[in-house]
């Protein structure tokens, strides 16, 4: 399996970051970075990462199923994550979540028909003092109102 030169460089660095015989440590970061490039954790990727870190594909599958950010199915090009945990909830994060569902016509972990935008109700993402917050892929948006969310989503539609 071949990856972009940047990802290969990242893999090389990761595999050298841990003590000798501890290359398994690179598994989770490798899956994260590779998922960004491939869109999801494919069977082929599981086999490849297993081979490179020296474990069985079963061991990779066992680990990745634990982590909420590793996805076996592709998400939208823009993955919109709305936090409704306590600090965001107190600032109407739950209403923001409902607004996003209504606006996009999809629900939790669903993708729009054109495959462009996916939606996830997430747990605390570390933006509690600037609530309610969302993340679009890895980018934070703070103090999000329904109006601001509309603008963000319309902007994503145009970029898509």
């Amino acid at each position: 399996m071949t990856f972009s030169p940047q990802l290969e460089a990242r893999f090389d660095k990761l595999l050298k970051s841990y003590p000798p015989g501890r290359q398994r440590s690179a598994m989770i970061p490798m899956l994260m970075y590779a998922q960004d490039e491939l869109g999801s954790v494919t069977d082929e990727l599981v086999d490849e990462v297993a081979r490179r870190v020296g474990v069985t594909p079963l061991q990779v599958n066992e680990v990745l199923s634990y982590y909420s950010m590793l996805h076996r199915k592709p998400l939208g090009k823009y993955h919109v994550q709305v936090c409704t945990n306590i600090s965001c909830l107190l600032c109407d994060g739950d209403k923001l979540w409902e607004h996003a569902c209504k606006k996009l016509g999809i629900g939790h972990k669903e993708v729009t028909a054109d495959g462009q935008i996916s939606l996830e109700e997430v747990e605390c993402m570390g933006a509690c003092s600037w609530a309610p917050a969302i993340q679009v892929n890895y980018d934070f948006e703070h103090f999000v109102t329904p109006e601001k969310l509309d603008q963000i989503l319309d902007g994503l539609r145009k970029k898509a």
């Binding site: 440590s25 970061p29 899956l31 994260m32 982590y67 909420s68 747990e123 605390c124």
Partner: peptide
């Protein structure tokens, strides 16, 4: 640096 993958 080492990336986590979503787990409190």
């Amino acid at each position: 640096t080492h990336s986590g993958a979503g787990a409190y």
